[in-house]
């Protein structure tokens, strides 16, 4: 575990060297967090397809499938077995009803 003081010093030095974190990046991360939360919230109601998640989270379809891919990779959501044009996704660990 990092020493809190050492870490703080490093980050401070980093800010001096590179200037503050760009606003564009902060906004992007905020938008990412919002989109993820919206997708995970929507899945609490039950399994959904990528277009359904896009509608629920107010995202374009291609962004929704990108987030699905991200959340799948990091173990937050899983595929629902089955066939069909649009596969469904669910929360991992049976958090959905």
């Amino acid at each position: 575990m990092a020493d809190a003081k050492k870490l703080a010093e490093q980050l401070k030095k980093l800010n001096e060297l590179r200037g503050p974190v760009p606003q564009e990046l902060r906004d992007r991360v905020a938008a990412q967090n919002k989109a993820q939360r919206a997708i995970l919230d929507a899945l609490k109601e039950g399994p959904k397809t990528a277009p359904e998640l896009a509608a629920a989270a107010g995202l374009p379809h291609d962004r929704a499938i990108w987030y699905v891919s991200a959340l799948r990779k990091y173990g937050k959501i899983a595929d629902v077995p089955g066939k069909g044009d649009y596969p469904k996704y669910e929360l991992k660990g049976g958090e959905a009803k």
Partner: peptide, 16 residues
């Protein structure tokens, strides 16, 4: 792979 199966990137549909 990114989706664990073959889907198209615009909307996550299984391409026919």
């Amino acid at each position: 792979g990114p989706y664990g199966r073959v889907l198209r990137p615009s909307d996550g549909m299984t391409p026919g």
